[in-house]
Amino acid sequence: MENGSKLYYGIKEVADMFAINASKLRYYEKEFPTLQPKKNRSGDRIYTQADIDHLKEILELTNEKGYTLPGAREYLKIKESNQREHAVYINKLKRIKTFMEKMRAGLDKPQPDQEKEPDAD
């Protein structure tokens, strides 16, 4: 399914990949707002690999996992929301990591008052 040689695929090519009609692809575009392939100058739909991957996920949910269309939409909506939330936490953790690395680097440097030899009494 993953063909890295092309950037864009026509609706017929994508329909053939999944053994479905082009009309079903157009229907899914109406049912799933997240599936919006771009159109070229002549108005033909052009699908990217990301569009194809998203369509594959939709078809897996509806055909293999038994989701209804509204159920699949809700599942994808919740999944996207969770991904955004996780991205926020990941960014916070990256900032904390950077701060901690700077703190550690600062601890490794000798401090001005530590460079002096203690006086022998």
Score class of each variant (00 low, 15 high):
residue 1 M to V: 07
residue 2 E to P: 04
residue 2 E to L: 12
residue 3 N to S: 09
residue 4 G to R: 04
residue 7 L to H: 07
residue 7 L to Y: 05
residue 7 L to G: 05
residue 8 Y to R: 04
residue 8 Y to F: 12
residue 11 I to Q: 11
residue 12 K to C: 01
residue 12 K to N: 06
residue 13 E to G: 09
residue 13 E to A: 13
residue 18 F to R: 05
residue 18 F to V: 09
residue 19 A to K: 13
residue 19 A to M: 08
residue 21 N to P: 00
residue 22 A to S: 15
residue 23 S to N: 08
residue 24 K to T: 05
residue 25 L to W: 02
residue 26 R to I: 02
residue 27 Y to F: 15
residue 27 Y to N: 11
residue 29 E to L: 03
residue 29 E to M: 14
residue 31 E to A: 15
residue 31 E to P: 08
residue 31 E to M: 15
residue 32 F to C: 06
residue 34 T to M: 13
residue 34 T to P: 00
residue 34 T to G: 15
residue 35 L to W: 07
residue 35 L to A: 07
residue 35 L to V: 04
residue 35 L to E: 10
residue 36 Q to Y: 06
residue 36 Q to M: 12
residue 37 P to F: 03
residue 37 P to H: 05
residue 38 K to S: 13
residue 42 S to Y: 01
residue 43 G to S: 10
residue 43 G to C: 09
residue 43 G to W: 04
residue 44 D to K: 14
residue 45 R to D: 07
residue 45 R to P: 15
residue 46 I to S: 06
residue 47 Y to V: 03
residue 48 T to G: 13
residue 48 T to Y: 06
residue 51 D to C: 02
residue 52 I to Y: 09
residue 53 D to A: 10
residue 53 D to C: 01
residue 54 H to V: 01
residue 55 L to N: 14
residue 55 L to T: 13
residue 56 K to Y: 07
residue 56 K to Q: 13
residue 59 L to P: 13
residue 59 L to D: 12
residue 61 L to I: 03
residue 62 T to P: 06
residue 63 N to I: 01
residue 63 N to D: 15
residue 65 K to D: 02
residue 65 K to N: 07
residue 65 K to F: 06
residue 67 Y to M: 04
residue 68 T to A: 02
residue 69 L to C: 00
residue 69 L to M: 11
residue 70 P to F: 04
residue 70 P to V: 02
residue 71 G to Y: 08
residue 71 G to C: 09
residue 72 A to P: 15
residue 72 A to E: 14
residue 73 R to P: 09
residue 73 R to V: 08
residue 74 E to P: 00
residue 74 E to L: 04
residue 75 Y to R: 10
residue 75 Y to E: 14
residue 75 Y to W: 07
residue 76 L to Y: 06
residue 77 K to D: 00
residue 78 I to S: 00
residue 79 K to T: 03
residue 80 E to H: 11
residue 81 S to L: 07
residue 81 S to I: 01
residue 81 S to C: 03
residue 84 R to W: 06
residue 85 E to K: 14
residue 86 H to F: 09
residue 87 A to W: 07
residue 89 Y to M: 11
residue 91 N to M: 12
residue 91 N to G: 12
residue 92 K to G: 03
residue 93 L to G: 02
residue 94 K to M: 11
residue 94 K to D: 06
residue 94 K to A: 11
residue 96 I to R: 04
residue 97 K to H: 10
residue 97 K to A: 11
residue 97 K to S: 12
residue 98 T to W: 00
residue 98 T to P: 00
residue 99 F to V: 09
residue 99 F to D: 14
residue 99 F to Q: 11
residue 102 K to S: 12
residue 102 K to H: 10
residue 103 M to F: 13
residue 104 R to W: 09
residue 105 A to G: 13
residue 105 A to C: 10
residue 106 G to Q: 06
residue 106 G to Y: 06
residue 107 L to D: 05
residue 107 L to G: 01
residue 108 D to A: 15
residue 110 P to L: 13
residue 114 Q to Y: 06
residue 114 Q to H: 09
residue 116 K to T: 07
residue 118 P to V: 03
residue 118 P to R: 14
residue 120 A to F: 04
residue 120 A to T: 08
residue 121 D to L: 08
